[in-house]
Design a binder for these strands. Structure first.
Lengths: 144, 144
DNA sequence: TTACAACCTAAACCCAACTTTAGGTCAAGG
DNA sequence: CCTTGACCTAAAGTTGGGTTTAGGTTGTAA
């Protein structure tokens, strides 16, 4: 099965210009072309793009993703590097999830805070603490 | 308790230039100054900065963080906006965690794959599938 | 066979979020 | 007083990850 760049863009929800940009950056070194120079993507290219999306989602820079594909092409002598890359990325991803989980807890707190504030019509709700209140009250005092 | 910009930079592990940048962008509208124009941070400013870090971690752009602080200053008439901001950010953060959890599963698979490959000295391991193999094998065939 | 959408390139442009640079000011210790 | 490190500003530069533009080619269907 083969696909045009437009097909791939729709399938993976990546813009055509981004796909061309990735190709130019050397992230898709193996994309075939027709005699008329039109890109022909196959299922392996789709798999590569999904891997790119996965690594990008975890914050790996494009140049490092490029390195990974270069290592794949070189072969078995680069297994150690590839292993290290994924082990490191695993750690970083776990850290990111932990950070986001923390952030989510704070945000949930705020959701509850503003839920109550919405009902009462004021952020001045006894029993609930808002981080910013002190200073804004100080500010109010300044103006009064 | 008050702090210099250098103190805050060390406490929160944010560079001095970033703190000044945030101030310039209007994210720290309430930071006091000495008569000699030196910034004086207090504990509320530290709380604001922690909130900034939290929202930034979830991908909220600085201009939106600025809006939030502006809404806080305006007062109770902006409760609804603030509520919506946090509800939306809650959703987005949950989505991000889900995405990262997916990515982590793929990465863990790769860790295992390369763990075995490392032991065997080759990625050509029966029973383990590598997304990229097809094409690279095709490539090998091209050259042989 | 020509019209038309979809493809191509190179190069310029864009944006957020910083960082660096250049040239100055502040304040505490000797 | 004067030195020195920490502070200040404005403005320019940097980076990553794209998008846009301008000008051209391909290929399919009427």
């Amino acid at each position: 099965m083969t696909y045009t760049i437009g097909d791939v863009a729709k399938m993976l929800n990546i813009s055509i210009s981004t796909l061309r940009y990735y190709d130019k950056q050397g992230l898709l070194p193996l994309v075939a072309r027709t005699k008329g120079n039109i890109r022909v993507f196959d299922d392996t290219d789709i798999e590569c793009l999904k891997m790119i999306e996965c690594l990008k989602a975890t914050g790996l820079p494009l140049k490092d993703i490029k390195s990974f594909f270069e290592w794949c092409e070189i072969g078995d002598s680069t297994i150690e590097q590839r292993y290290n890359l994924f082990m490191e990325q695993k750690e970083k991803t776990e850290e990111q999830i932990a950070m986001l989980t923390d952030a989510l807890a704070r945000i949930n707190y705020k959701c509850n805070f503003y839920e109550v504030a919405r009902q009462k019509g004021t952020t001045n709700v006894p029993g609930l603490r808002e981080e910013l209140k002190l200073k804004f009250l100080k500010e109010e005092n300044k103006f009064s």
